[in-house]
Computed example of a mutant assay.
Amino acid sequence: MLCDKCKQRPATVHFTKIVNNEKYEQHLCDECAKGVPHFGFGGDPNFSLNKFLAHLLTNDPALSGLGLTYKTERCENCGLTYSQFSQGGKLGCSNCYHVFREKLDPLLRRIHSSEYHKGKVPERTGGKLKLLKEMESLKNELGVLVSREEFEKAAEVRDKIKDLEKKMGS
Rank of each mutant, 00 (worst) to 15 (best):
M1G: 03
M1A: 11
L2Y: 03
C3Y: 01
D4F: 02
K5R: 10
K7W: 01
K7V: 05
R9L: 04
P10E: 00
T12H: 03
T12L: 09
T12N: 09
T12M: 08
T12P: 07
V13C: 00
H14W: 04
F15Y: 02
T16W: 01
K17N: 05
I18Y: 04
N20G: 09
N20W: 12
N21Q: 04
E22K: 11
K23R: 10
E25H: 01
Q26V: 14
L28Y: 03
E31G: 06
A33C: 09
H38R: 08
F39E: 01
P45K: 12
N46T: 15
F47Q: 02
S48F: 10
L49Q: 11
F52M: 14
A54F: 11
A54Q: 13
A54W: 08
L56F: 12
L57I: 11
L57M: 15
T58H: 10
N59T: 05
D60N: 15
D60M: 12
A62N: 15
L66C: 02
L66Q: 02
G67R: 08
G67F: 03
G67M: 05
Y70C: 07
E73Y: 04
E73M: 09
R74Q: 02
C75N: 00
E76I: 07
E76D: 01
G79C: 02
G79L: 03
Y82A: 06
S83V: 09
Q84S: 06
Q84D: 07
Q84G: 05
F85Q: 03
S86Y: 09
S86P: 06
Q87K: 15
G88K: 12
G89A: 06
G92W: 04
S94G: 04
N95A: 01
C96G: 01
H98N: 04
V99R: 00
V99P: 01
E102K: 05
K103G: 03
K103A: 04
D105N: 14
P106C: 09
L107C: 09
R109G: 03
R109P: 04
R110K: 14
R110V: 11
S113P: 03
S113Q: 15
S114C: 07
E115W: 07
K118D: 13
V121I: 12
T125R: 13
T125W: 09
G127K: 13
K128N: 07
L129V: 15
K130R: 14
L132I: 14
E134Y: 05
M135S: 08
S137M: 12
S137V: 11
L138M: 07
N140D: 13
N140P: 04
N140R: 14
E141S: 13
L142N: 05
L142K: 08
V144N: 10
V146F: 10
E150Y: 09
E150S: 11
E150R: 08
F151K: 13
F151V: 15
A155D: 01
E156P: 07
E156Q: 13
D159W: 02
D159V: 06
D159T: 06
L164M: 08
K166C: 07
K166T: 13
K167D: 08
K167W: 09
S170M: 15
